[in-house]
Design a protein around this nucleic acid. Structure first.
Lengths: 179, 179
DNA sequence: AACACCATGTAATCAGTTACATGATTAT
DNA sequence: ATAATCATGTAACTGATTACATGGTGTT
């Protein structure tokens, strides 16, 4: 039982889902490809933690909709009682900045500008999510609110850092025009 | 040439180092065990990107001190010209919060309190780092300043989120005392 | 006496990505 | 026509962790 396995159980605790939808939903929290998820679901089923029913569709391919068993719920409950591993962020940008003197200053500037753009894009997406659950009929449950805010805090701080970092870079290499 | 390989080159661009020290230094940016680093350094050497000299020590075991070759520097320069991959954060806590209704509310509260403590600990460590380079003799180069600040922004925002999240939790289950 | 640090390496396993494989529906 | 989405699966490979292996110095 690795973290991805518990992650799938966690998603299923909110609503039954196909492997395909689980892949899409888990992406922001724990990236995984379908090639990792399908076999893992089969294993969780053989362990009795989830079960599936085949849902036949006419317009789209048939799908297997998985749901938690009592044993699965119990496994989740126990998992919530042990401390979470420390979060791990892998950000190539940090490694590139570490050796920034080795490269073209324009390249470094571009890397930071790309990060600013990326954060803005993610924040815009999150804002759309927030708007969607502001309308009373589909108010989001507390966990979803907590997680959306966590992402907002993260991207907002990274954005502010990247904009600050751009200002710390030496002036553009425009040598004074001789007249 | 994967990201870890470039990460090692990046560290070596600032100063020659042993595999052991590289492991310690790269940890905050790209976690890797010595069992991954030693073979990779050997491969980078056979590719002509790094070279090593054996440094004999009396009190401690001998070590191999690696440094960048010209070919290694050129590889770094080229790498800086391509966009950085999007950052990936894997945080078990997000998965646990997603299914928080399944567990004991006290467990959830504890998970968030542990996160608050962790962020405070990291911030304290970063503050010590900052103090260390405030004294003029050993002023840090720009990249190091940028990276320390990036980490500060991150842990500070995660801390603020976790403290906010604790307040969003339903009241403690202290049922009113019958008198 | 037991543990932590320094220092390097290999072997076995687990986790994650890329590629192979299929096939219908809908949008550009 | 070409691509994207939906939907599931396996095979091959790369990346990362854990375990095995050694051995001196310094600390509690």
């Amino acid at each position: 039982m690795n973290t991805l396995a518990y992650g799938l159980l966690s998603l299923l605790s909110r609503s039954a889902d196909s492997g395909y939808d689980l892949m899409l939903k888990i992406k922001p929290f724990w990236p995984a490809k379908h090639s990792q998820i399908y076999p893992l679901l089969a294993q969780l089923e053989s362990d009795g933690l989830v079960q599936h029913v085949l849902v036949v569709q006419t317009d789209k391919p048939d799908k297997k909709v998985y749901s938690l068993t009592d044993k699965g719920k119990e496994a989740l409950r126990a998992w919530l009682g042990v401390p979470a591993d420390d979060p791990v962020t892998r950000d190539e940008l940090t490694l590139k900045l570490y050796c920034m003197e080795q490269g073209d200053p324009a390249d470094i500037r571009l890397l930071l500008e790309q990060r600013v753009a990326y954060c803005n894009e993610r924040l815009k997406w999150l804002q759309a999510k927030i708007e969607a659950y502001k309308s009373p009929p589909n108010a989001s449950p507390l966990p979803v609110v907590l997680l959306i805010q966590k992402a907002r805090f993260y991207y907002q701080s990274d954005l502010e850092w990247a904009e600050w970092a751009l200002q710390q870079l030496p002036e553009h290499g425009e040598e004074p025009q001789p007249d």
